[in-house]
Amino acid sequence: MTDHSNALFQPFMLGDIPVTNRIAMAPLTRNRAARGTDAPHGLNATYYAQRADAGLLISEATQISRQGQGYIWTPGLYSETQVNGWKQVTDAVHAKGGHIIVQLWHVGRVSHVSLQDDGAAPVAPSAIAAKTKTFIETGFAETSMPQALDQAGIDAIIGDYVQAAQNATRAGFDGIELHAANGYLIDQFLKDGTNTRTDRYGGSVENRARFGLEVVDAMLKVFPAKRFGVRISPVSPANDAVTSDPAEVFGYFVAELSKRGIAFIHVVEGATGGPRDVAPFDYAALRRSFKGAYIANNGYTRAMAIEAVAEGRADLVAFGRPFIANPDLVARLRQDAPLNTVNPATLYGGGAEGYTDYPALAA
């Protein structure tokens, strides 16, 4: 029997990003940006630097504008203070020899009026409320009713994505992951359960994919394709976003992304943070239809990850929760060592506790 145990620890070229192993840290919302500015700061730099042994760090989801924010104390990348805060983070990761990309995010309808400028309604493809909760200053709360975007609103958001891509370069990131998963704005356009528009952005598969592809095309005018990827979640019911035709819409969307020569797709297989078999879907077909790299995500164990990379089903595997409690996850996976468990009470908000104080193996 072939020993594949080294498969996860081989170097790889992810587009133009050289990674030292096939382990990615998935984006993890931790709600620890500076209060008042939503800028990263020294504690965040420590947290990411602790985990810089990962072949690729993908930042926590980072809003492209105040309108794009859906949870309190999540970081942005639209002000000078935020750009400078992220520069502290990227410098700290690079000093440890790591690579970090930023996940850019607009939550669409998964927001609350208290997070929006002047208490405005959140925006969405269609005025359909999300049956889900968000996190505001007082704790978890029902999302607010959204307003449907008009063409001017869509154009403005595309402009915000472009500005965020330019800011990512200034902040020192090695690349960008566009968040098109988990029931946020781009995913809301893709899925017919959240998009009931009758204009050029609704109805057919091509129309529902139009907004996401327009965002990609605009960003690629200012950012290199070989340092750019997109995250999708074809069958995840996260944030009350479902579609009747996942194979058709995501098959089309990924084929179109492939034509644009981007570096990778990052695929949530199954329900985000839940069962992998929530609905049938042929992930291997996506892999075949896409010329770039495939990052697999959701519920992978060490054994599953080794097998997926060894058999060519994935180029990298992204781990989420294990990275929260194990700053040295790469070393633990290499040695097949036991993992620390996550303290759920310190996941969202707070300071160093449950953030930068999880013990490493050596301790």
Rank of each mutant, 00 (worst) to 15 (best):
D192T: 11
F173Y: 00
A156V: 10
H179K: 09
H179R: 08
T196E: 05
S204Q: 05
L149N: 08
G202L: 12
Q151L: 13
F189W: 06
L213M: 12
V162K: 14
F189E: 13
L178T: 01
L185M: 11
T198D: 15
G183V: 15
N182R: 15
A148C: 11
A141E: 03
F173A: 04
D155M: 02
A156T: 12
F189A: 14
A180Q: 14
T198Y: 02
D174I: 12
R208P: 02
V162D: 02
T194A: 15
T143E: 05
E214I: 02
Q188L: 09
T194W: 04
G159E: 03
A141K: 09
Q163Y: 07
D174G: 15
I176S: 14
S204H: 03
D174A: 14
A180K: 05
F211M: 04
D199S: 09
I157V: 14
F135N: 14
L178G: 01
A141I: 07
R208I: 10
A181Q: 10
R197G: 00
I176D: 11
A171I: 04
T169L: 12
S204C: 02
F140N: 04
G172P: 02
Q163S: 09
G203S: 06
T169P: 03
Q151A: 15
A171K: 04
D187R: 08
S144P: 07
S144L: 05
A152R: 09
T143R: 04
L149W: 05
I154S: 01
M145H: 09
D160Q: 09
N182G: 11
G153H: 14
T143A: 12
D187H: 05
R170D: 08
A148S: 13
D192K: 15
G139Q: 03
D187C: 09
D192A: 07
A171M: 04
G159Q: 07
I158W: 06
G172S: 01
N182I: 07
N167M: 02
A181K: 08
V205A: 09
A152V: 06
A180D: 15
A164C: 10
A171Y: 01
G153C: 13
L185W: 15
L185K: 14
G175Y: 06
N167D: 09
Q147Y: 06
T169R: 07
F189Q: 12
A165D: 02
V162I: 10
E214R: 08
D187G: 06
E137C: 09
A156Y: 14
A156H: 12
D150S: 10
A152S: 08
T138Q: 11
I154P: 04
T169Q: 15
V215R: 03
V162S: 08
T138G: 11
T194Y: 06
N195E: 01
S144G: 07
I136G: 01
K191H: 08
I136C: 04
Q163V: 12
E214V: 00
N207K: 10
A209W: 00
T138L: 11
G202V: 11
T194M: 07
Y201I: 01
G153Q: 10
T196W: 13
F211P: 00
I158G: 12
A164W: 13
E206L: 01
I158M: 07
D174N: 13
F173G: 07
T194I: 15
I158Y: 02
E214S: 00
F173P: 09
E137Q: 12
V215P: 03
A165K: 13
G175K: 14
D192H: 05
G175R: 12
D199Y: 04
A164T: 06
Q147T: 11
D155A: 11
